[in-house]
Amino acid sequence: MDALLSSFTAVAIAEIGDKTQLLSLFLAARFRNKTAIIAGILVATLLNHAASAWLGVWAAQFIPAGWGPWLLGGSFIAVALWLLIPDKDDSEDTAMLKYGAFVASCVLFFLAEIGDKTQVATVILAASFENALWMVVWGTTLGMLAANVPVVYAGSWLLQKISLDWARRAACAVFILLGIFTILSAS
């Protein structure tokens, strides 16, 4: 259960102001079928984060036992600092949009998530909770949905109410605390 809650919290917070959240806003403005957009986000996130979690568990086996907490803690802190850098909306009209809300959302979201902060966080979380791979996948996926579903339904209004700078700083603090906790738990 720790893997699920930690993954959910870390990704839900890290996703605020992320490029995939901006993509959700773009898709919601482009398509009326909000359910199809959310289904596309769900499928893309499940596939992307399952592969990422598997990579994290696979990579964890090559890390010497004493190094694991230090590398994971350092990775959490590196992601924390990365969160302070604002993302830009690099979505644009693409040929993918002609295939409808679900296909466009699924493909564009999957591609936007490659190399993204939340994907890196998923790799780190899976390495940290290597015996709970599917709990990490479900936690990160639910975290992505928790951050993106409100944007799909009320994106413009929400973005006027929430300071993205504050959200990035809060997410940074959470990841720094996770990093410190991971390092201290090794002692």
Rank of each mutant, 00 (worst) to 15 (best):
W70F: 14
L23A: 07
D90G: 06
A170K: 09
E15H: 03
T122Y: 06
G66T: 12
V123D: 02
L108N: 04
Q21E: 14
S163C: 01
T140K: 08
G155S: 01
D89N: 15
K98C: 08
I41R: 06
A132I: 01
Y99M: 13
I77W: 00
I63A: 07
A39H: 05
G56S: 06
L42E: 05
L42V: 08
A80V: 08
L158E: 02
A121I: 03
R30H: 11
F181Q: 14
L177S: 10
G66P: 04
M144T: 15
A146G: 09
Q21G: 12
V120D: 03
G179Q: 09
E130D: 02
N131R: 12
D89F: 08
V152W: 04
V151L: 07
F175E: 00
L47Y: 00
V120N: 02
Q61E: 15
W166C: 05
A171F: 00
A154H: 08
L142M: 10
G17R: 03
D90L: 13
L4F: 05
A28V: 08
F8V: 05
L177T: 03
V137D: 00
I41P: 12
N148I: 02
I114T: 06
L145P: 10
K117E: 04
V57W: 00
I37Q: 08
A95G: 15
A95C: 14
V43L: 02
F76N: 01
A95S: 15
R32W: 04
A65P: 09
V136C: 02
F175L: 09
I162M: 09
A12E: 11
W166I: 11
A147R: 05
L159D: 15
A126M: 09
A39T: 01
